[in-house]
């Protein structure tokens, strides 16, 4: 009898716990306008800015053999830190957690090759763009996929969760089987091990992959819509957003992003993609 009472109490407690979690949830949504984020002044005062970047997506954001962050996004991040006069604390993110990092104020800016989409713009604020992007599909040399109609019912395409490639395929090709991974490193390894007939991702990424790894061909280099990549801040962080926009316009005058390209991307893409990829001064041509 005593045991039963105790057990019932335990179950009730767990129900309460769940209810508590749900309760907190709805409360948080109501005052989402509270200050989860840090304003420009607060960042300057603290002397540290937290920037979310990739640590495994060469050549955009990665950690080199000396443990130092490198890449196109990081080059820009370094400049932001210098111009703000603060030190940078890099936070390594995965594609799927970029939004949460901003929503919970764990980073001030996301500079992790973040493609601007309508859905994302509803939950975070994007600054002006600094790069062009579309989707691409890379496949093995012995079976190059040049059109998504070549994907059979038993074939799988590799995608990374939380990327625009995943969203695009889920929405437009619901019948294609997706093999999902949560990091670039895992997706790469699995693809090299022969999992999946193709890998869909940002075209910049798949071109870079095929350029570095022999045996792969980018059969589709433009899929979906022409999008841009931009820094993102927590929804409503207007002071930081304004500063970023001014910064991007100002950097355009010195052709900063062309220089960025030549420092970080030219080894992978050569000079031919420079004007296709770079967006200078926040203006898409």
């Amino acid at each position: 009898m005593k045991r039963n009472t105790r057990r019932i109490a335990a179950v009730l407690l767990s129900v309460l716990l769940i209810a508590g979690i749900f309760g907190c949830g709805s409360k948080k949504e109501e005052d989402a306008s509270g200050d989860v984020f840090r304003t420009l002044d607060e960042i300057k005062e603290s002397g540290v800015i937290r920037i979310g970047v990739f640590s495994d997506k060469s050549p955009f954001g990665f950690v080199d053999e000396n443990g130092i962050y490198q890449g196109y996004d990081v080059y820009f991040a370094e400049r932001i830190g210098a111009d703000l006069g603060v030190t940078i604390e890099y936070v390594s993110t995965e594609a799927a957690s970029r939004i949460e990092y901003l929503e919970t104020g764990k980073v001030d800016i996301i500079l992790a090759n973040f493609t601007v989409t309508e859905e994302r713009a509803q939950v975070v604020d994007f600054a002006l763009p600094y790069m062009n992007v579309a989707l691409g599909v890379v496949s093995h040399d012995d079976r190059v996929i040049t059109d998504l109609s070549q994907i059979g019912a038993d074939d799988q395409i590799i995608v990374i969760t939380g990327t625009t490639a995943e969203t695009f395929l889920v929405k437009n090709y619901p019948d294609i089987q997706l093999q999902k991974f949560d990091t670039y490193a895992a997706a790469k390894s699995a693809f090299e091990n022969g999992t999946g007939v193709a890998w869909a991702n940002d075209n910049t990424e798949v071109i870079a992959f095929a350029a570095v790894n022999p045996g792969y061909t980018v059969g589709i280099d433009f899929l979906g819509s022409a999008d841009t990549i931009a820094p993102a801040v927590t929804k409503g962080n207007q002071t930081l957003l304004d500063w970023l926009n001014d910064e991007i316009v100002a950097l355009g005058e010195e052709n900063f992003f062309h220089k960025d390209y030549e420092e970080t991307l030219v080894d992978t893409y050569g000079l031919e993609f420079e004007d296709t990829l770079v967006v200078e001064g926040g203006v898409v041509k």
Partner: peptide, 21 residues
């Protein structure tokens, strides 16, 4: 390792639709 278990389903849905809570 890309198995769509509970944890991965939650992470994937958050990545797709941003309904974290």
């Amino acid at each position: 390792i890309s198995l769509m278990d509970l944890m991965f389903t939650a992470k994937d849905l958050i990545g797709l639709y941003y309904r974290t809570v």
